[in-house]
Design a protein around this nucleic acid. Structure first.
Lengths: 210, 210
DNA sequence: CTTATAAGTCACTGGCCGGTGACATTTTGT
DNA sequence: ACAAAATGTCACCGGCCAGTGACTTATAAG
């Protein structure tokens, strides 16, 4: 039952559409994201978005499930989880937060979605939010269980710092300087990274693996 | 030469339009901001936007110059600037940052503009950015001159923290929880405020004036 | 009172949008 | 080989948008 070379292939077309979402998102941002633009980018008729995905929201959902938008636990905990566990709470938290920063810096499309999330909710941002929520619960359970019963509010500080660099990542797309920070240079981001450690009272930021 | 009660008054109409911008912004956010919406809200024909302001960008500019979107130096430095000057650098910075947080929390329209700014540039966000840039230079010159030559990068940490709560303010418009922080309760914001001080190694956050 | 000009109204264009129905063509099952 | 179903194309709708030209009406100057 060898299949012909298909000129019409539902799965292939679905894939084209999903990939087109990524391309439109990268090129025009979420502002330009619509059935017409996506269909055009996919080289496919927009009616198929309705037929195969029942509308744009579900297509976005599919797109969200297709990529690795959020770093894995391994990527953020580093190669040696056990060594990490032995550090004091502050150091552990700082390293994880800094690693998260590095991981997100590598994901321009995730940053685009984060920007979107800042202004409106939708299927895509909702999916990402769920993943992230679960992710942070996992991190706490696995390497920061003691953070829940400390005197100082380590988790609040960590969240505030994560919020801070997420915002700076978003702004870096179209802003050169923010409060004296150069958002489009590696040097500026080194400063930001150092400030993270400073907030946790650690002077010399350990290097992240390369 | 006592003027009649005017039924046609250019200045009055300009004012109506400018105020309408604020109303639309507050009600529908920047997504719903357009010549049609603004004109409708002002109860005035949209063609006047072109006649009196030469288009929406200039109208936004006028709106930007009309309100106090950014807190004054006085509002953030507190009533007793001299007392503030005598504190150590960390404490000074922490207090200013925390006061800025309080000041912005009271300005929903500024938060709306900040959200806008995160995703796209335009006349309005540009104007606000200029004001803010100047503002932070003034703060540094007036009460944080020593921050420029410290070992630890106090300004980077301050900027990161400001970025953090700005992002949380933006998110608080349509998100209840972020990283375990309750963004729509005073208690959640107290936690965030405390985390600010914690980042500067100050355990008990001084109360802001009431 | 007359008239020029400013203020404001109205109707329209052209473009893009999301969404749908009717149609043509390929693939699949029998 | 044939019919049914799946795949894809096309033309169209109504709605909202930004922007413009032609119009009416109030105001002010003489």
């Amino acid at each position: 039952m060898a299949k012909h070379v298909q000129t019409r292939d539902r799965e292939q077309t679905r894939k084209l559409l999903i990939e087109a979402v990524g391309r439109v998102l990268a090129q025009d941002g979420f502002a330009g994201l619509g059935v017409n633009a996506v269909a055009r980018a996919a080289g496919v008729d927009k009616v198929l978005i309705y037929r195969y995905f029942d509308g744009l929201p579900n297509l976005l959902q599919a797109y969200g499930e297709s990529g690795d938008f959020w770093p894995s636990l391994e990527e953020v905990l580093g190669p040696d989880e056990n060594a990490l566990r032995k550090l004091p709470l502050d150091a552990r938290t700082a390293i994880i937060v800094a690693n998260l920063l590095d991981a997100l810096r590598k994901r321009p499309q995730t940053i685009e979605i984060l920007a979107w999330e800042a202004v409106q909710q939708n299927a895509l941002t909702g999916a990402l939010a769920d993943v992230r929520e679960q992710w942070s619960r996992n991190v706490i359970a696995r390497v920061l269980p003691d953070s829940l019963k400390t005197e100082t509010d380590v988790l609040a500080l960590a969240s505030l710092l994560v919020a801070g660099f997420q915002y700076l990542l978003i702004r870096s797309r179209n802003t050169k300087l923010y409060g004296g920070l150069a958002l489009q240079t590696d040097d500026g981001w080194r400063r930001i990274r150092n400030a993270l450690f400073q907030a946790f009272r650690l002077s010399p930021p350990p290097r992240s693996r390369h």
